[in-house]
């Protein structure tokens, strides 16, 4: 362009429009492992009807989703799967940690349970409760919509050059349990 457009004006408006579009068409990826998954199903089913908030299109393929809802405890064997699915999702993406188990490990302070998924992947929204009621999940989605409207996509990673995105999206081979040498501690 010949004229130097004040960059911030246009970009801000477009950003807001984009954020508005995004927040009203969240496609959740239900990473339902345990009890919270049943409440997640209840939220999507007839009585609570998540469709009222534009977030009812549950897609089980991570490539099509932009919101991961981790519902239930994540254990040692499952965590590499969770990380892999998080990597497979395209930008922009958000993550809701639903329930006490996903957020902190909950009552399961045991050898196998990961004590909070936020130790290993980024989380945008935490929902307390064991399990949270459907209303709480709906509230979390409304709050996340506010956050998306306010902050946009945080880093604008989706606007990066394709060449810069490629290495991120490439499926980096994460070590599953036991493959890494560090796992085998002394004395066992």
């Amino acid at each position: 362009m010949a004229i130097e457009v004040p960059e911030n004006v246009v970009v801000t408006k477009l950003d807001e429009l984009a954020s508005w579009c995004r927040k009203n068409s969240l496609w959740p990826m239900p990473f339902a492992t345990a009890c919270c998954g049943i409440e997640l199903m209840a939220t999507g089913a007839s009585k609570h009807d998540l469709a009222r908030f534009g977030a009812e299109v549950f897609r089980f393929s991570p490539r099509q989703c932009d919101l991961m809802i981790v519902a239930g405890r994540v254990v040692m064997k499952m965590l590499p799967v969770l990380q892999r699915i998080w990597q497979q999702m395209h930008e922009p993406k958000w993550c809701i940690s639903m329930g006490a188990c996903a957020s902190t490990g909950g009552v399961f302070d045991t050898y196998a349970v990961v004590q909070g998924i936020d130790r290993f992947i980024p989380v945008d929204m935490y929902i307390p409760g064991c399990p949270p009621r459907p209303e709480q999940l709906i509230q979390a989605i409304i709050d996340l919509q506010d956050k998306i409207q306010r902050e946009g996509t945080i880093r604008g990673a989706e606007f990066e050059l394709a060449s810069r995105q490629a290495p991120k999206r490439a499926l980096v081979e994460l070590p599953t349990y036991g493959r890494s040498a560090a796992m085998i501690g002394p004395g066992r």
């Binding site: 492992t33 254990v75 064997k77 045991t110 349970v113």
Partner: peptide, 21 residues
């Protein structure tokens, strides 16, 4: 084993009323 969380081990720590949760 993708959801093995050690229920039986917890049962050795919580008393008979607590374990119901």
């Amino acid at each position: 084993g993708y959801l093995h969380s050690g229920f039986e081990k917890i049962g050795e720590k919580l008393d008979y009323n607590q374990y119901v949760t």
